[in-house]
Design a protein around this nucleic acid. Structure first.
Length: 438
RNA sequence: GACCCUAUCGUCCAGUGGCCUAGGACAACGGCCUUUCAAGCCGUGAACACGGGUUCGAAUCCCGUUAGGGUCGCCA
């Protein structure tokens, strides 16, 4: 029987999925896909105070949004379940008895502790190398508690038991667990089981590099990328590049290729600060090259989420409007401000744009443009361009400067989609009305 | 404080003894193009933490210092 790797992502349902956790999941997933192994999702809900249905849902949603599918775990099942620690009590009792019988345990204040053998423990880690930890001093390395007086379990114990039971071959997790690892190895030894191979991946630091990214930091929750409307493949791509690289200076790289190139020994050892700007840039890149139909779908969802009533407009209109935004926005949350004018009867005028462009000398030109547009037999982008360009020449004004007042009059903003196309989509009637009303 | 990890532009990454007067990307700045804003194109500024070794030769190897991060729970 060939030993295909079995890896796992074991989040605790805290109500949010941290980007660091997401990257841990991603690296596990990549390794499983690269090797043809199995990616297991296990929910570490021993602390039931924060274990809620919604909290677990957040994990599923985040992983699915990033396209990280698991082979075993909640919702999909598997041979080694259950995949919630809260349902594995009988297993833990059995393992506890094994340790007790072998004399490894003692009671202290009602809690159960594991008596450390007080030796030097070697941790074999693919990323950090082989490290020797001296656990001989009880002052600096007190015996770990594995069960509370109320019968609930402590992380170190259940984590190791589950990894044994689930046949986990490679433990890929955040470097914040590195110092815990010798304790885990002691447990493996006590169970008479060979420890898995460890790979502690570097942490994701705040933008200023001071400390690991935590709950309060912008961009720490995967949910925030979903609501801000990043392209999911861009976030996944960006996460791949934090601590790993294709080595050829590429920034945008297809996930299938990452799967092919990825390996644990190629992971960097240094922590990395998270650069939201670069992630947003990548998002724009992905939207630009995205299948138009998919962009429309995502754009539609974002607009509806922002409270835009798309039901008032027919599908073709919405599609056309969205098409003019593709490649122009980096995040979907920019859409309401960028393209909101398509879906509003009342124009929202940017006052700075008005004073800058709707000047006394611009108004007669605007009137001329309005007249020219009104006389058009076909009101499409090409025809509009065809009539506006000569008009600008006639006035002897540079095209860009000449047209800008029209844009402001129609959209209320100095920035937006291609003017000719936006006019076509809006339709002659609305354009003429907006032009008259300045 | 103890232990562990790390150390190249502001940030991410490339560089594994000579091809490096250090390369790419984001960000910044300047220019071009242009129906706005973007995009695109061109360009500018910007780094091997410090000190010792090893070597003919070090960003690359070794030691120390310093700095940063992590862990030291009856959280996970």
């Amino acid at each position: 029987m060939s030993q295909k790797p079995r890896v796992r992502f074991a989040p605790s349902p805290t109500g949010y999925l941290h980007v660091g956790g997401a990257r841990t999941a991603l690296f596990n997933w990549l390794y499983a896909r690269h090797t043809g192994g199995t990616f297991v999702l296990r929910v570490e809900d021993t602390d039931d105070k924060r274990n809620t249905e919604e909290a677990v849902q957040v994990i599923y949603d985040g992983l699915r949004w990033l396209g990280l599918d698991w082979d075993e775990g909640p919702l999909v099942g598997g041979e080694r379940g259950p995949y919630f620690q809260s349902q594995r009590n009988a297993i833990y009792e059995r393992y506890l008895e094994q340790l007790r019988a072998a004399g490894h345990l003692y009671e202290d204040g009602g809690a159960v502790r594991f008596r450390s053998p007080r030796q030097t423990v070697q941790v074999v880690d693919i990323v950090c190398g082989t490290i020797d930890f001296d656990l001989s001093n009880p002052e600096t390395h007190p015996d770990m508690t594995i069960r509370r007086p109320d019968g609930s379990w402590i992380f170190h114990f259940v984590n190791v038991v589950d990894d044994i039971e689930m046949g986990i071959t490679h433990v890929i997790r955040g470097e914040d667990h590195l110092s815990n690892t010798p304790k885990h190895v002691e447990l493996y030894n006590a169970f008479g089981v060979r420890p898995p191979i460890f790979a502690h991946i570097p942490l994701i630091l705040k933008k200023d590099g001071k400390g690991k990214m935590s709950k309060r930091d912008e961009g720490s929750a995967v949910a925030s990328y979903i609501t801000d409307g990043y392209a999911p493949e861009a976030v996944r791509n960006y996460l791949c590049l934090l601590g790993w690289s294709p080595k050829d200076n590429r920034e945008k790289i297809d996930i299938a290729e990452v799967v092919q190139l990825f390996d644990l020994d190629k992971i960097n050892r240094g922590n990395a600060a998270f650069d939201l700007e670069k992630c947003a840039w990548l998002s724009g890149e992905y939207f630009r090259e995205m299948d138009p139909a998919r962009f429309r779908e995502l754009g539609r969802e974002a607009l509806v989420r922002a409270g835009v009533d798309l039901a008032r407009f027919d599908a073709a209109y919405v599609d056309a409007a969205l098409d003019t935004c593709r490649g122009k926005v980096r995040l979907l949350k920019e859409l309401p401000a960028y393209a909101g004018f398509y879906f509003r009867d009342e124009r929202i005028m940017d006052e700075a744009a008005r004073t800058k462009f709707l000047t006394p000398e611009a108004l007669p030109r605007l009137a001329a443009m309005r007249e020219a547009l009104g006389a058009l037999t076909t009101f499409d982008a090409a025809a509009i361009e065809g009539v506006l360009k000569p008009l600008a020449a006639q006035y002897g004004v540079k095209l860009g400067a000449f047209l800008q007042p029209l844009r402001v009059a129609v959209t209320g903003s100095a920035a937006g989609p291609s003017l000719y196309h936006l006019l076509e989509i809006l339709g002659r009637e609305r354009v003429l009305r907006l032009c008259a009303d300045v």
